[in-house]
Structure formats: structure tokens, C-alpha cells
Simulated scan of single mutants.
Amino acid sequence: MTATLTFHPLGNADCTRIDFANGQKMLVDYADMRNANDPFDKRVDLPDVLKADLRVAKRDNYDVVCFTHLDDDHCCGAGDFFWLDHAAKYQGEGRIKIKELWVPAAAILEDGCQDSARIIRQEARHRLRQGYGIRVFSRPKKLKDWLEKQGLSLEARAHLITDAGTCVPGYSKYGQEQVEFFIHSPFGWRQDDNGIIDRNQDSVVFQATFLENGRETYALFMSDIDCDSIDQMVKTTKRHGNEDRLLWDIFKIPHHCSYTAIGWEKGEDKTQPTEDVEWLCETQGRERHVMVSTSKPMPVKGSAEDKDVQPPHRQAGAYYKSVAREADGSFKVTTETPSIAKPKPIQIEITDRGARLLTISAIAGAASIVSAPARAG
């Protein structure tokens, strides 16, 4: 069995399912954004497709659910879908259990959050207090202070905390799961220096390294960080001699294809990258890679959408497309589809030749799969 990554069409929102080689399942974010009362809403019915997949696998749980940060487009509807231990009202038949919950430290520390963000925060706090089923990324001083207010010490919960620049314990590319996770963000020092929580910049960014028959394939999950944070990440990685930790064959484009993840000027037709973003995209991306924008379709120049401050930005899309062309790669948008059809998930298989893009036919559905050739060895 080989690993697969499935990116769901949710508009400007995220939910990626990762199926490991040994059958374990992981979700990176969960955002049920579809309006069931709108017949023209093309976003996927996320609870339905995820539960259908779990039924086939004969399971009612995920081994890992990672919320990269608590913006609504990364956690919407979580309180309706998951079995959560901190309150009985989030328990009952049909709810999906989480063996291990991954969150940034900001998700523990944030006060004043509401709706789905508050629900996930409460679950994360409960698990951290109890000392089970949780992985927290980074240990700013504020986390130490919060734990002490709970009558706990940082040392007592250190086994549940992973810092940037290290791998998540319990996962190995040489183990049955055939994958390891290297954490790039959040930086604990950044949260201490800034004094306030910035969900996007304090979000979880990681490289997943898959090993299939001796061949390594790399996936970078960039969450919603901007170019300043990417610059810091690149400089820090280079300073520690870890450039290989920023190699990628699969690139989950940051912040739904916003130009701010490339440079601070949108540009007329193409955003110009900062020096570090250019290095990350143009040097570290390997031949025949796949770039995935979890977003709405790229706007047409001069359209109302083109003038919107919110992503996706066609200038950013133009930059990523140019990067893909130079590497004989692919640039894919999760919600880009002909007007007569609903978008299908983007699925990538990890093979012994690299990342293999699977395209599900919009007409025939899941029964028809056409594969792009894997990147050559």
C-alpha cells in the first residue's frame, strides 16, 4: 500500500487527508464550508466524503487531526463532526474520534476566540491538562505561564510539545508508516517577542518526508504564513544547515494563493518574490513537482474578483505557474473546474518514482482515474 494525499475542494479553505502506507489516516485542517441550501455551491460536502472514506476503511477515527491554526477556514464545523472529550454535547453516535490532536501553541493560549475556534481550543486545553492525545507545537514563555496557572509544569508536559526545527516523535520514514514530519513553524521566540497572537504567522508549517521503496518524496504544508515568515523560516533553516528540510515535490501553496506569501507588492501581472521565497520555490522545488492552491479559481484580469483584496490573486497564481513551467511541474487549484461540473478532490499518490498526480474524471467520477506520470528518478 502506498501513501496518498487528498486535497478537498472547499473554496478558500483547507482540508487535506493523508493516508499513510500502513493504513493510518491523518487530516490537516477541517473546514466544512459548503452551503447545503445553495444548489450552485460547488464546494464539497466534507462530512459526507470523509465519512464515506472512513466507512470503506471500517473505522470511526483519525490517527491524527492537525489544525494548523484556528481561523474559520481551517476549523469550521469541527464541533459538529468530531467526537470531543471536553464536553458531553460533542459526543454521540456518528461523531468521528481523534486519537491525537495537533495544534500550535497559539491555539492553547488564545483568549476571546469564538465558534469553532473556541471549541478546538477547549478540546486542546482539556487534553493538555489531562496529558494525553495532544501534540502542541512550540513552547513560548506564555505556554509555560499558562501551564503553571493550571497547576502543571512545562517539564511535566514536555513530552507532548514539539519545537520548530525538530521531528514529531512516533513517526519514522523507516517505520511501517513510512513518513516523518519536520516542523518549521511556529517559532516560540516570535510569539514571545511580538506579545500578541497572529494566527497565520503562528500556524503549523511542516515538511512530510515519505519513503517508498527507497525513494524519498517531500511535501511542504505552508499553512497561511506570509513572505516575512517564509523569509525567517528559510534563513533559520539555512543557518542550521537543514536546507534539505525545505526540499519539496508537493507544495501546499500558502494562504490560498495570496500574493503576500510571495512579496509585499502584488504586481500588475505577476508578483515578484522576495529572495528567500524565490530560493524556496525555484531552487528547492524538484523536477515535475505538484503545487496545490487550496482556493477559488484564479480571477480573470479586470473582473470584480480581481479587485478583491482577498485571495486568490492572479498575480500570485502567475508566479507559481511560472515556477511549475520551469520545472515541468503542475499547478493545481482545488476549486477550479468547468462550470457544468462540481470539482473533484486533487489526489496525489506517493510512488517509488515520486509524486504521482491522479485526476478523477469529472464525468465518470471516482471510477475513472487518469494518472500523470511520476517524476522520473
Rank of each mutant, 00 (worst) to 15 (best):
I134E: 00
A3F: 08
D231N: 15
E123T: 08
L128H: 04
L280A: 01
E93V: 08
R215S: 04
K296P: 00
R199I: 11
P39F: 08
E212S: 06
A3D: 10
P297E: 04
K270M: 15
A208P: 01
T4D: 07
P297M: 03
T2H: 10
I196H: 14
C15L: 03
R17E: 15
D352W: 05
E278L: 12
P299R: 07
R314G: 08
I363T: 13
W146I: 02
A21C: 12
P169C: 08
E216V: 03
Q176F: 11
K99A: 09
F137S: 01
L211R: 14
I120T: 02
S223A: 15
L70H: 07
Q191R: 15
Y319D: 01
N242E: 14
G77D: 05
D73H: 15
E336N: 14
K307Y: 10
P47L: 12
D269N: 14
R215I: 10
G165F: 04
K25C: 13
T337W: 06
R121Y: 01
G77H: 02
E148H: 12
Y319T: 02
P338K: 07
R353W: 10
C66I: 11
I108M: 02
R17V: 11
R34I: 06
L154F: 11
D269C: 12
E326D: 15
L143Q: 03
P297W: 01
V56S: 12
R121L: 09
F7K: 03
V179K: 06
L46G: 02
P169A: 10
T162Y: 01
G77W: 03
C75E: 05
I230M: 05
R375T: 13
F137V: 14
K97R: 13
P297V: 05
R286L: 10
P373H: 12
T271E: 11
D226V: 06
